[in-house]
């Protein structure tokens, strides 16, 4: 009973704060609602017994991603009126495409008939929750079974970083750059320390 109550509390707050993220007028408020949404989702994970995911969600998403969003939102000067200018213009066609897609989805959902072996196969990668902790199970899945995908994902991120630097990094002339090696290599003799008495100059 109490678990159900807590579930509905977290789930209701998640949905409500999610709705506020998209409807808030001030983008900074949107990010704050998003943080609330993350916290409630973490609560849902805890109820499922996935404590590792819950903690990661709080640390990574609230601690890092949401703060990054906040920086971006505060730094970008988004003109909302300009964003909405084309909205009405594209609404009929976009709405039509969306309606067709929705119709197709509904048709698919009604005719849905998974194969007999599907349920067993979906559960196959999951170890017995009584035997291993979920942190261990996740680690096994990520770093042993799917190590190939994990490393490829790492390479994709590396390529994204190289690409971002390649497309945005510029060397401007007339800029005095800090050369740390030169600073460290300065000999103590090139600096003179003097004691200055108060009230007098050098």
């Amino acid at each position: 009973m109490s678990t159900a109550l807590i579930f509905y509390l977290f789930a209701g707050l998640t949905v409500a704060s999610g709705a506020m993220v998209v409807s808030a007028r001030n983008p900074v408020h949107s990010v704050l609602w998003l943080i609330l949404c993350f916290f409630n989702t973490a609560g849902l994970f805890l109820l499922l017994g996935a404590e590792f995911l819950a903690m990661v969600l709080v640390i990574v998403y609230v601690g890092a991603v949401a703060v990054l969003f906040l920086f971006v939102v505060m730094m970008l000067d988004v003109n909302r009126a300009e964003l909405r200018a084309g909205f009405l213009h594209y609404l009929p066609l976009g709405g039509l495409v969306g309606a067709v897609l929705l119709g197709e989805l509904v048709a698919v959902a009604f005719a849905w008939r998974p194969s007999e072996s599907a349920e067993g196969l979906t559960r196959a990668p999951q170890p017995d929750p009584m035997q291993v902790t979920n942190t261990q199970a996740l680690g096994h899945l990520l770093y042993t079974d799917y190590i190939f995908l994990f490393q490829t994902a790492g390479l994709i991120l590396l390529v994204a970083m190289i690409g971002a630097i390649l497309l945005t990094h510029r060397r401007r002339g007339g800029v005095r750059r800090q050369v740390i090696a030169d600073q460290i290599a300065r000999s103590p003799r090139s600096v003179e320390l003097r004691k200055v008495q108060s009230g007098r100059g050098i």
């Binding site: 008939r113 998974p114 194969s115 072996s117 599907a118 349920e119 067993g120 196969l121 979906t122 196959a124």
Partner: peptide, 13 residues
């Protein structure tokens, strides 16, 4: 539909 993403499993299902 098939509960797997592997090509072998998909062709079987």
């Amino acid at each position: 539909f098939s509960g797997t993403t592997s090509f072998l499993g998909l062709s079987r299902s």
